[in-house]
Design a protein around this nucleic acid. Structure first.
Length: 549
RNA sequence: GGCCCGUUGGUCAAGAGGCCUAAGACACCGCCCUUUCACGGCGGUAACACGAGUUCGAAUCUCGUACGGGUCACCA
């Protein structure tokens, strides 16, 4: 009969606290009925990933909707994969997207809250305390197998076509004695601590997933690793301890975790913890050569959230798009509440898609357009200059040269009851308004086929003589209409349509000529406004340039 | 391969046995409005993966097949 207490002392001699100590240190939260305590637990292995942002958003909105708590926890138990600045990348990324944090890391490396530390590498002693307790109870034991030994076992299992893994009779050190363990330790052999799983493949474990519904799986019988040889826990163990001590009520994470739920449930029960509710979020997918696959950090630029910043998507518009994926009833709500903050939306997990949604940039563009058209010219000015300062310094200089002028440009078709929906992201602005800035304007006078160059030039000549920058819209167009008949064009579109053979075209065609002369484009916002902003001199100047050929 | 999960138009999706002759949004096309460019309005193309079963009745329940996804580490 193994002396488990002796084994525990042998393995973790420096641990003198007990689970009770921590239970008392982190008492239950005082929250109203129905409040959900949720978290996002990223590992600092790279930049902020779209999937992580998505998970963060879903958790944040769940906490907000229920009057609960949202916290961040850094899962840095794998030192090999950790990168410099990894924590800041993710935490500051959340902040940039307006995902506020109630507890845990909230900016750079700053953390707050009563249930910390919120970084797993700083919680080693806590995990070890619980592991020691498990060993004493005979639920955990040391394993001295090397990677090579484990690999050899796996090969045998594969050759025999049986389930691979460290379980049942394959669990070599399951019944190791204190003496055997001591001898191996004295030899300097490294070891891990494994769970002595009481489970059986024959039994079923059933749980209700908040998103996917009822799921039934075989019980875990794998003696998986709790503590790695460096004394740091694996994800599974840290998850159980932390979410218990931090009193998480709902574990909402990527659905790649579904298959390990039996392990987690087993751990919670063995440790005497209340099992939290689980909700597994489907990944955002991407179409690759006709095949759907999870969006990948390595292959897809849009997987890195930085991609959106570079393109000039306002971060809240990316969130807006993510909300449409997260909740199937969000768009309806948005139509009814066009100016409300998405945070006021009542989020319901049941409305989340069970299968993974394809990332749709075209839809993102549309969502973003619909939000940007609601902004004032001042807001657009602030956004665009902020973006350009970082990503297009040359354009930035042009924009700030004369702020009032630039704002007047953005006000065209914007500060009106029915604003134009044209800009979806800030990197489109430069090209879209290039003709409004001397430094960017390139004259171009390619007429449509139905207009003769001689007529166009004759029109410009006449128009130049009567044009005034003070004209209001009606006056402005009346002048075009007045010239039309003198050149054989119809003043009214209807007249032309009724009798197309009698005219060369309509006043509308002449507007196109003018637009071309002034902007070099066939498509622009309201021409009259453009000419007013440009000013009399510049307009005459541009017409002259065309007339001179 | 084992174990899970999924499959409604090109995309996101509504849908919980009769209300489905299957909603809405994006994209696309057409028409209307219009001084241009847009906005907007109206309309259109387009889907229940397949096969059995249960039922008076199935997109909805069951089983099977196919396809897609996830997972099987001292990574999270």
């Amino acid at each position: 009969m193994t002396d488990y207490n002796a084994l525990a002392e042998l393995l973790l001699p420096n641990i003198d606290k007990t689970p009770e100590y921590y239970e008392n240190l982190y008492p239950a939260r005082n929250l109203p009925e129905g409040a959900r305590v949720v978290r996002v637990a990223p590992s600092p292995t790279g930049y902020l990933h779209l999937g992580t942002l998505f998970a963060g958003l879903v958790n944040r909105i769940t906490a907000t909707s229920s009057g609960g708590v949202f916290f961040t926890r850094i899962e840095d138990t794998d030192k090999k994969r950790e990168i410099e600045g990894g924590i800041e990348n993710i935490i500051d990324g959340f902040a940039r997207f307006g995902i506020t944090v109630d507890e845990g890391f909230y900016s750079g490396r700053q953390e707050k809250g009563d249930y910390g530390p919120y970084q797993q590498s700083h919680r080693a002693e806590i995990y070890q305390t619980y592991v020691k307790d498990l060993i004493k109870k005979g639920y955990a034991y040391p394993c001295f197998c090397t990677a090579e030994e484990l690999e050899a076992v796996r090969e045998i299992q594969e050759a025999q076509k049986i389930r691979t893994g460290y379980h049942g009779k394959w669990a070599k050190h399951r019944n190791i004695t204190v003496e055997e363990a001591k001898a191996l330790i004295d030899e300097g052999k490294p070891f891990v601590i494994r769970l002595k799983s009481p489970g059986s493949e024959e039994n079923k474990v059933v749980f209700e997933d908040g998103i996917k519904g009822k799921i039934e799986m075989p019980e875990n019988d794998e003696d998986f690793v709790l503590l790695k040889s460096d004394g740091i826990p694996t994800y599974h163990f840290a998850h159980a301890i932390d979410d218990h001590l931090m009193h998480t009520t709902h574990v909402m994470r990527g659905d790649e975790w579904i298959s390990s739920v039996p392990k987690h449930i087993q751990l919670f029960k063995l440790l005497g913890f209340k099992v939290p509710k689980f909700a597994h979020i489907s990944p955002i997918m991407k179409l690759d050569n006709g095949a759907k696959r999870k969006i990948s950090k390595r292959k897809d630029p849009e997987a890195a959230v930085h991609f959106f910043a570079e393109q000039g998507f306002p971060s809240e518009n990316v969130i807006e798009y993510l909300m449409t994926i997260a909740a199937s009833d969000f768009e309806d709500w948005r139509r009814a509440n066009p100016t409300a903050s998405y945070k006021d939306f009542k989020f319901n997990l049941k409305k989340m898609s069970v299968s993974g949604a394809l990332f749709d940039e075209v839809k993102l563009l549309d969502v973003s357009k619909n939000r940007i058209c609601l902004l004032s010219s001042q807001q657009v000015y602030d956004y665009v200059t902020e973006w350009a300062k970082e990503f297009d310094p040359e354009f930035y200089e042009i924009l700030v040269k004369n702020p009032e002028y630039t704002k007047a440009v953005f006000a065209i078709d914007r500060d009106v009851p029915k604003p134009r929906k044209d800009i979806a992201k800030w990197n489109e602005v430069k090209d879209y308004f290039s003709y409004m800035f001397d430094d960017l304007y390139v004259p171009c006078f390619e007429l449509p086929e139905n207009i003769q160059k001689a007529d166009a030039l004759a029109f410009l000549e006449s128009y130049k003589a009567v044009y005034s920058a003070d004209d209001d819209k009606q006056e402005w167009f009346n002048k075009i209409k007045a010239i039309a008949p003198t050149l054989g064009f119809a003043a009214e579109t209807k007249e032309y349509k009724a009798n197309p053979d009698a005219y060369k075209g309509s006043a509308g065609d002449l507007s196109t000529v003018l637009r071309l002369a002034i902007t070099g484009r066939r498509n622009t916002p309201d021409l009259c406004s453009i000419m007013q902003v440009l000013g009399q001199d510049e307009v005459i100047n541009r017409i002259d340039t065309i007339l001179r050929g």
